[in-house]
Amino acid sequence: MDAFVDVFWTKGYGGTSVDDLQSAAGIKRGSFYASFGSKDDVFQTVMDRYWKGVTEPGLSNLEPAVTAVDGVASFLRHVGRFMSENPFRGCLLLSSAGTSTSRVDASEAVSERMAQLESRLTQRLHTDPDLSLDRARNLAAYVLTVLLGLNAMARMGHDGSSIQSAAECAAQSLYALSQQP
């Protein structure tokens, strides 16, 4: 599965063929289908593995902080470091957002994970007694926008320091935005 994660992460869903996957697994096409099912089945499994191995550990940055905004700012900084360490790849989940697949359930796997990410951010921000649920949702949407931008920077090969600077700027902006009515 690690090889499959690497192929999808590097090439994206649309750029990955069954030939790429079977080559990564070192098996023939017939064996691939018998062992793993379709490309969409593998993609869904890859998304689950990536969420558990990369996204969940990143989201752990939300909790130890004293305030909700501190937690989300810490998460933004973490993502900036992660993106700077993955030039031309960025984040598999964010890169897959909006990817069309031949089966609805594979597209839903990405949509569900993105919704889960937004929900986790909203929930954490809403623990701030000064932030209404609507305000927390708006700030979570802002953070998602920033994450997609950081991912685009990484995928385009921006240097790590500029990605981390952008993440820091967004983290600092979050403090100011959280104070607005």
Rank of each mutant, 00 (worst) to 15 (best):
G98T: 06
C91N: 15
S161N: 15
D19V: 15
D2L: 11
K11F: 13
L125A: 06
A141I: 09
S17E: 14
L117D: 03
G90A: 06
L62V: 03
Q164I: 08
V72S: 05
F4I: 04
T101C: 12
D134F: 08
S23Q: 14
C91W: 10
V5K: 14
E56G: 00
R124F: 03
R49D: 11
A170Y: 01
V72E: 05
T16I: 04
P87M: 00
L121A: 02
S119H: 09
A166D: 13
A154R: 07
F36G: 06
Q179D: 11
S162W: 12
S119I: 06
Q180I: 13
Y175F: 09
Q172R: 14
Q172D: 14
K39W: 02
L121I: 05
A170Q: 03
D48K: 13
F88M: 14
E168Q: 10
F36A: 11
V146F: 02
G58K: 07
L117K: 03
G98R: 08
E56H: 02
V18Y: 06
Q22N: 15
P129S: 10
M47K: 00
V46I: 06
L62T: 02
E108Y: 09
V79G: 01
A140Q: 08
H126R: 04
K39G: 00
G15A: 11
S111E: 13
A3N: 08
A171F: 04
S107V: 01
R29Q: 13
R137P: 05
E108A: 12
A97D: 11
G58R: 09
A73T: 04
R137W: 01
Y50G: 02
Y142M: 03
F4P: 04
A141R: 12
A73W: 05
Y142D: 01
T145I: 07
T145G: 14
T16L: 01
A152V: 13
V79H: 08
R89E: 13
V18M: 10
T45D: 15
K52S: 10
F8C: 05
G37V: 07
R49N: 08
D40P: 05
R155L: 12
Q172M: 11
A73E: 00
A166R: 15
L117E: 03
L150F: 10
V66I: 14
S165Y: 11
E112H: 10
R120I: 04
S84D: 10
A3L: 09
E168S: 15
D130I: 05
L144Y: 09
F36M: 11
T145C: 14
N151C: 06
P129C: 09
R135K: 15
A65S: 10
V42H: 03
P64V: 01
G58M: 11
Q123P: 03
N151I: 05
T145W: 12
R29D: 05
T127V: 13
L150A: 11
S102C: 11
T99V: 06
T127F: 09
S161F: 15
G30H: 14
S165L: 15
Q172L: 12
L148E: 15
V69Q: 02
D19R: 15
E118Q: 10
Y13D: 04
